[in-house]
Amino acid sequence: MSETVVFIGKVIVLIGVFFDLLGAIGLVRLPDVYTRLQASTKCVTLGTCLILFGVFLMSGFPWKALLAIAFVALSGPTAAHAISHAAHKAGVKLWEKSVVDRYQEDEKKAKES
């Protein structure tokens, strides 16, 4: 029984590492700050949570791993939001093929009025 659980844990850690790798590839391939943040946040949050869950299964159910999952899932997207907001405030441009930027339009309107 416990060997099966450990095996399942190893498989889950492997899947998590795969998603982390995808996040890294996205970080290299995508063109600008916002798209890179998208790829890295989504993949790294789920990947790290999966690794922690795999560790939870592998090494005798340490419940603090689940607590760590909760904190990672809370802080990952918050950090991404902070970085993207700061980047936009600092004037980092979107990729040149971007379709629309409602935020910039609204800021311009607010400045003019």
């Binding site: 998603f19 995808l22 990729w95 629309v100 930027d101």
Partner: peptide, 19 residues
């Protein structure tokens, strides 16, 4: 995550970003 995987691994990067 599967969506990101598809877009990142696709050779032509099928993205069309905007806010």
């Amino acid at each position: 995550n599967l969506d990101v995987a598809y877009r990142v691994l696709h050779p032509y990067l099928p993205i069309e970003p905007g806010i």
